[in-house]
Design a binder for these strands. Structure first.
Lengths: 115, 115
DNA sequence: CGAATGCTCAACCATACACTTAAGTAACAG
DNA sequence: CTGTTACTTAAGTGTATGGTTGAGCATTCG
């Protein structure tokens, strides 16, 4: 369970903005250019471009310059890594919760994993 | 797929800081007081208290005043909600990827779900 | 060629963040 | 009652973020 602390900082920060989540949402349905991504929003293209940069720096998306447009795609494995971090913590919490349940039922707490 | 945008903003923002993730990590192993949470860090108690407030506002933890100490616990279902948001996007992206794979193999793309 | 398109870069601004220190309040302990 | 503990609040500080406008730079089109 290595701590890719910097990457998690960037990824969670990238996800903490509704516009960026919207962009990710859009990209989960297929690649798009920066201006396609900008269309649903009032913000300037430059602002969206900055959001794209934040997403790319976080590793959640990858982009590639194709002619004068930039193709943006979601990076599934990075999303998976973030998901896993959450999943690990939740499972730990839930297993503790289960152990507590057994204890309250008078079961043997030592049957679970470590203290 | 309702957008609890504000809650997601708060949750992802809360998770974007290594100290707060550390606190969550600690709490996934069981409840703790604010000063117990502060022990591993150099920061002032006030700083940790602020982090706890951020985490509580995000719904990722719940706290309860017990005498002069405050007991902090992780809120598994909130973690689960965040996890689900990520999972939904990743699965969408992956299903698209699968469809693309079938297309490249000469399969029938219409067998997948919506366009 | 020259014009339009799509992105990129730079500078600036207002707000939000993560701290800090210092003072304040509410349990307990003696 | 007095002191200690444990949290809480307030105010202040430096830095980062998200947004703007405006200019710059490669394509691509006519």
């Amino acid at each position: 369970m290595v701590e890719h602390s910097k990457q998690l900082d960037l990824a969670f920060h990238a996800l903490s903005d509704a516009t960026r989540r919207g962009i990710l949402d859009r990209l989960s349905r297929g690649p798009a250019s920066v201006s396609e991504l900008a269309k649903p929003y009032q913000s300037s293209l430059a602002a969206i471009h900055q959001h794209v940069q934040v997403l790319e720096a976080s590793g959640l998306i990858v982009t590639e310059k194709r002619g004068r447009t930039r193709e943006c795609r979601i990076a599934g494995e990075a999303v998976q890594r973030v998901e896993n971090w959450l999943s690990e913590r939740r499972q730990l919490w839930e297993s503790r919760f289960d152990r507590l349940g057994r204890l309250l039922e008078g079961g043997d707490i030592t049957k679970g994993d470590n203290a």
